[in-house]
Nucleic acid binder design. Sequence first.
DNA 1: CGCTACTCCTGCGCGC
DNA 2: TGCGCGCAGGAGTAGC
Length: 316
Amino acid sequence: MPELPEVEVVRRGLATWVAGRRIESVEIRDPRSLRRHLLGGEDFRGQLKGATVVDAVRRGKFLWLPLSDATADDGGSPHTALLAHLGMSGQLLVEDPGQPDEKHLKVRLTLSPAPGLPDELRFVDQRIFGGLAVVPLVPTYDGGPGGHGARPLPLIAADAKHIARDPLDPFFSAEAFHARLHTRRTGLKRALLDQTLVSGIGNIYADEALWAARLHYARPTDTLRRTETLRLVDAVRDVMTRALDAGGTSFDSLYVNVNGASGYFDRSLSAYGRAGQPCARCAEDGRTSIMVRESFMNRSSYRCPYCQRPPRNARW
DNA sequence: CGCTACTCCTGCGCGC
DNA sequence: TGCGCGCAGGAGTAGC
């Protein structure tokens, strides 16, 4: 389940193995993975064929590869990008053409040869919540670069324009986040999952950060004290940084792997999936409290009933 | 515009 | 053994 750390691991892989290479051919195995590309598969193929990947940029969980077209009048300065969202189960794999097709292979790009590097970029996606599209690059109006890995040009993929900065973005402002929480009338976990308020957080890291910050998911956002917001932002940064380190170390082959999360999952989760198990923090303090799973927003939430107690005026 | 519920999609694990 | 159901959830959008 890719959240920010997993997507960032993929971005780094793409920047290393794909940037600088030309797209020679495009094979569409399942057009459902191109739903975001409104002009259809033939247009998608036409826009990619012959273009050169310039970079790999991320904003929240959105990832894009700015494209240059050497035949363009302006000398090839990127004004479009190949946008990818991994959804629930998407993978971007750099592989040798000899590797057998994955069961859920959706799109295959053949890249110009590069010494010692595999020549295919494959999009694999079991549940098809993710997808690819070629989209315009448009100016950002929130200052600074488009996101991690961006060049100084303040350009962002059009489909990611509404996505807020993430807590690891150097331009992220915890003060501005706190102010926006106070304009909202909703619960804290909803706000954490709202990618227009803060990006990169999914269900797993939301539960992890709330547990680390000792906050309940139904806490009304407009009652958060500044110190609580800062504690929460610190917790998000901490859990993401640790996940990034874990995913980053396992990524050293010629293989861009979104499943870099797996090692992290098994070892380091304190809340998510731990229903029925003791709260680690309470255990350290000599208490025994058992983590609970609650259904919320049509998904699961995990919390410690002792250190994450329901607030007054809970907002679900 | 703010907020919430619904929907898309497949594979797996469980109970009967 | 096989069937049906619940669960997993990111994000766009319909509707209030």
